[in-house]
Write a protein that binds this DNA or RNA. Structure first.
Lengths: 149, 149
DNA sequence: GCATATATTTAAGCACACTTAATAAAAAAG
DNA sequence: CTTTTTTATTAAGTGTGCTTAAATATATGC
């Protein structure tokens, strides 16, 4: 019998497979939502950030302000985003998820959790314990911040 | 002190964060490669499958044959794909990565492994053991096949 | 106050992925 | 052998995201 693969290789393969699975599921959901990826990304950003201006979106997505403005416009038209004037600085527009927008994002998160929960449910209690421990370790070691900007 | 989050929640958050990180890294690489996502996906598919026809690509990507043919054409023009006639069935074209194509895909995989390896290197030996164990558990429970077709 | 910088929008135009419809060639079915 | 199906391509047209350039409005620096 050959020797087992080194731990690092096992971890790499695990991350590869899990992310691959997660990505495919996410793509499928976005497709059924009728939105494009960039549009959807804006919604997700606003879910985590709750409120921001157009410039913050263009900065995070690495596109021009003009591009971000156009994307936002479509989402406003679609009734997924609310765009109001910032009273403190009337140049900036405050962007926020509308109720419909929130609903869509929550559905996306639920879909993302579905296959995870099935996976988790298939584990033995002691396995679940090990996996949770590992995730805690990984997350705590992940990125100091790594914003690349 | 409040109670700790349930294991399932810890696992979900771990998977979320890891996939998010992986996705961002991958996007960055694809961008620098000068290719678009659909083009890159074809290369990745041919990396894992080594050889296939145009129809298989359109089926897997859920686009028409016409669209797949056009994408393939661009990759052939770019020198990343080889397209030859299948002698067994002269309707189908055998698609295969060229040497340049292979090189690009390998660079992508190397880039994907880079941050993982940094992460792995930051772990204590016993942590690494736990994480590897967890990954093994997860992968073995992942998807029977789940090809959705 | 006046010049400059910042935040956003609009217009014009390009590249890309995608679609449908039409074409061609080979394989499979009858 | 004729008809039908499969595989791939081409042509024409649509929608999207993106860019640059120009316009507008507000805030900031001196």
């Amino acid at each position: 019998m050959k020797h087992a693969p080194p731990l690092a290789e096992t971890i790499r393969q695990g991350i590869d497979q899990i992310t691959h699975r997660a990505f495919r599921e996410h793509l499928r959901f976005v497709k059924t939502s009728g939105l494009t990826m960039p549009q959807f990304n804006i919604l997700m950003q606003l879910h985590y950030q709750h409120e921001c201006g157009v410039s913050e979106i263009s900065a995070r997505m690495d596109i021009t302000n003009a591009a971000a403005s156009q994307l936002v416009e479509k989402l406003v038209q679609a009734g997924l985003l609310e765009r109001t004037e910032d009273p403190h600085d009337r140049r900036v527009k405050q962007l926020r998820l509308s109720d419909n927008g929130k609903q869509l994002v929550e559905a996306a998160i639920a879909a993302r959790h579905q296959w995870m929960d099935e996976l988790i449910a298939s584990l033995q209690p002691n396995e679940r314990e090990t996996v949770a421990q590992a995730m805690h370790i990984l997350v705590s070691h992940l990125p100091p911040i790594a914003d690349s900007r």
